[in-house]
Design a protein around this nucleic acid. Structure first.
Lengths: 246, 246
DNA sequence: TGGCTTCTTCCATTCAATGGTAGAACGTGC
DNA sequence: GCACGTTCTACCATTGAATGGAAGAAGCCA
């Protein structure tokens, strides 16, 4: 019973609290939050109250805790992806208009593609790639497009640690996919997420010729027409890259 | 030189750090961040390093600090507005398709409308209502639509404290605007933000008949056709409200 | 090269953070 | 309506984590 029996700082605890929210869960019971974050109830309670006072969290009736609107506001108005999304949105709208497909934009975070923006195909509701959602590199066209254009070192590191949790894919297969994507200039993947859809993605290069994002579409198998999709995506990706330069 | 000379807790400091980012600024110099947050440089530095370790901030070369992608991810995947936005997006897309106007969705935060989602008019780039941006209630149709359907107490409190920083608008004028919006079921405002545009917004009511959001469009003056716009917005707003009920 | 700014590290001091405990509030079944 | 389990909230003595000035390192520009 001292200052931090568990040996972590206040900052660590605040982070644990925020990270304790399971994906997609907007609200949590205080007790459950304490459990999930591994903090003693009284500590969790005290921290939540403090954070609520600033609006980073919201403490509702009955110990109901949710992320604060104020936090959402602060993060989104100063988002690290702001410039990227602003540059990309007009081009994404073009793609959506012309091809009428689900369009998405992803960046590389660790060994996963993190989707930062998305436009839905008109009329359809289903779209797996949620904003702020992740997909492992080896099963997403966006992930492959991104990884295929990273430095040799990073790719080597990635392949080194690669292991398919389901044991179906070997690192050699992934190596091949990456080589192919690098050579073709786009990545494609059929029916991995959804058996009836294709994913196609191209890298977005910034001024320094680094692949900072991937622009992709998810199309129904029936409408798969590479020769039409790829040039459109590549053109848009170049446009985005040019915007990023200024 | 003790534990917190300024008398605020670690949590307070973390919040100050995050709030120190000026709207729209994605990155900040460490020294400037320390200044803006009012923290001693060494304290700011230590906290930034800790937060960076968890990815909530990112500490780049040369003391360059930005919000972390990890924080963006956590906040957006558990956003308090997630349910609202998911319910609203399909309807917003409908509006965009049918009317081809800038569509936006706002909630009430304090005495301001906070824009949580937005779709741009095809082809146009300009759109003042940025995501995570704010507009005072009395100069935004969304704000008026929201406030007009709040409880009598809240409205009274709002009008009580109201004061136009520019001294042009009196609280009586605002009272009148609110009454009108409440009676008509929609709020309209001409050329306040941009001299050539109209804003029209309708409230979105949840299951408990509380106005939880406002759905609005911004149209060029020339294309202003109330009799077409309002019914479309109201229909969409009802649809959104119905979704929120489940 | 010299001077200026900005970043980073160090460490003795001390008070804010901690968490077990107790009690209040809530919900639920009998 | 009572008793029981659960969850939330408040308290407070203990103590080690947080603090921030100062000095050194690293850039940067003229």
């Amino acid at each position: 019973m001292a200052n931090s029996a568990s040996g972590d700082s206040v900052v660590d605890r605040v982070v644990r609290l925020i990270e304790a929210f399971p994906e997609g869960a907007t609200s949590l019971q205080l007790t459950e939050l304490a459990d999930r974050s591994g903090l003693p109830l009284s500590s969790a309670h005290r921290l939540v109250r403090q954070l609520s006072g600033h609006g980073l969290l919201e403490l509702g009736a009955g110990g109901n805790v949710r992320l604060g609107l104020r936090l959402w506001e602060l993060v989104n108005r100063n988002s690290p992806t702001l410039a990227l999304r602003q540059a990309a949105l007009p081009f994404m709208e073009d793609i959506q208009q012309v091809l009428n497909q689900n369009v998405n934009l992803a960046v590389l975070e660790g060994w996963e593609a993190l989707f930062v923006e998305r436009l839905s195909r008109r009329g359809s509701v289903a779209n797996r790639a949620r904003i702020a959602g992740r997909m492992p590199v080896h099963i997403s066209s966006a992930g492959l497009a991104l990884m295929a254009h990273q430095s040799r070192e990073l790719q080597a590191e990635y392949l080194e640690q690669f292991q398919d949790p389901e044991g179906k894919v070997t690192s050699d297969v992934v190596r091949h996919l990456l080589a192919e994507a690098a050579q073709l200039g786009y990545a494609q993947l059929a029916g991995v997420v959804d058996p009836d859809t294709w994913g196609i993605a191209v890298p977005v290069m910034n001024g320094k010729r680094r692949a900072v994002a991937a622009l992709g579409v998810v199309v129904p198998l029936a409408e798969m027409r590479l020769q039409a999709l790829v040039p459109a995506l590549q053109t848009a990706a170049r446009g985005i890259g040019r915007q990023l330069r200024d």
